[in-house]
Amino acid sequence: MPIPGIQQPDILTIDTTLRLKKVGNRFDFALPWYQDPETLMLVDGKTDPYDMPHLAEMYRYLEQHGELYWIELRTPDGTFEPVGDVTLWPEDLPIVIGRKDLRGQGIGRRTVAALMERARCLGWRELYVNEIYSFNTASRALFEGLGFVPCARTPRGARYRCPLD
């Protein structure tokens, strides 16, 4: 159980086209997301590509600390396809939209807003984003637009906090 005493749902429906699905054992389809230099710069602040062991280690770490989900988008044929990942835990809210062609379309905003509501329902009083790099203007705009504010400087950006009450 990633968050003690809390059962993670298998599916969190955001709307008719977007949902969060509890991550299972298969994640090979996500490897290209973590080999793309642009994505890596936004996520890690460097462009070193992941291999499968590194990706597995990252997902294992996230699962041990919070609720790890695939961000899934409904396709024209009605099925859902993973387009990114997100983890809800009190100390961080890492999110990646792995499909670059889908960035800037509100998927991240709708996802974070849904997880903020989940955190409120769980009785959490605040959420944090451990670090957003100064150059990552899209992430800063996303989180600031939802009420997160910088609360501490980091070597490459800032830690963000959002009160939920």
Rank of each mutant, 00 (worst) to 15 (best):
Q8E: 13
P9I: 00
D10E: 13
I11K: 04
I11C: 04
L12P: 01
T13Q: 12
I14K: 01
I14F: 01
I14T: 00
D15Y: 04
D15Q: 03
T17P: 03
T17S: 13
K21V: 11
V23M: 14
G24C: 10
N25V: 07
N25Y: 06
R26T: 14
F29T: 06
F29V: 05
F29E: 14
F29D: 15
Y34N: 10
Q35P: 10
D36G: 05
P37Q: 06
E38A: 08
E38C: 05
T39I: 09
L40K: 10
V43M: 06
P49I: 08
A56M: 09
R60E: 15
L62A: 09
E67I: 11
Y69W: 13
W70Y: 12
E72K: 01
R74M: 14
R74Y: 09
P76F: 07
F80T: 01
F80N: 03
E81S: 12
G84E: 08
T87M: 11
L88I: 03
L88T: 01
W89E: 15
P90S: 13
E91M: 03
D92H: 02
L102K: 07
L102Q: 07
I107W: 00
R110P: 03
R110K: 15
A113Y: 04
A114N: 04
L115D: 00
L115G: 00
R118K: 07
C121T: 09
G123R: 04
W124K: 05
E126M: 12
E126P: 13
L127V: 00
N130S: 12
F135S: 08
N136M: 06
N136Y: 05
L142K: 06
L142N: 09
L146W: 01
P150W: 00
A152D: 12
Y160G: 02
D165K: 07
